[in-house]
């Protein structure tokens, strides 16, 4: 197995793991965490498949750097929304609990 294949498969594993976390843990911060894990999994698949003979293709590299920054932009907005949600009283983050009460 080449390192390229190994890391690409790890990326696939991260995507699956991240999706599982996204579905089963509904806390807002966990959702943002899961989004970031899925994102880095996608980047790893993309970058590792462009790895050939000890060099990683610079085009995916540049696009991944762009992707990291875009993921950060979304995370920053999500974090600010979570903070504002908390400041406004928010209440429980579990919609089922709210229905019951």
């Amino acid at each position: 197995m080449t390192p390229s294949l190994l890391y690409a498969l790890t990326g696939a594993g991260l995507i699956a793991l991240g999706l599982y976390g996204f579905v089963t843990r509904s806390h807002l911060i966990r959702r943002v965490l899961a989004f970031n894990v899925i994102g880095s999994g996608v980047f790893l698949v993309f970058g590792a498949l462009g790895h050939e003979g000890g060099i990683t293709d610079p085009v995916p590299q540049a696009l991944i750097i762009t992707g990291i920054v875009v993921a950060l932009s979304l995370t920053a907005f999500a974090a600010a929304m979570i903070a504002r949600y908390a400041e406004d009283g928010g209440g429980g983050l579990d919609p089922d609990a709210e229905d019951a009460g």
């Binding site: 843990r25 509904s26 911060i29 974090a79 908390a86 400041e87 609990a97």
Partner: peptide
């Protein structure tokens, strides 16, 4: 960016949640 800034942002959001109420449930 991925580890540093994202981590700081999420810890900030966690703090805001913590400061306002007892910790929200983590179902």
């Amino acid at each position: 960016i991925g580890a540093g800034v994202t981590g700081v942002l999420l810890i900030g959001a966690w703090q805001a949640l913590n400061a306002q109420s007892a910790l929200d449930p983590d179902p």
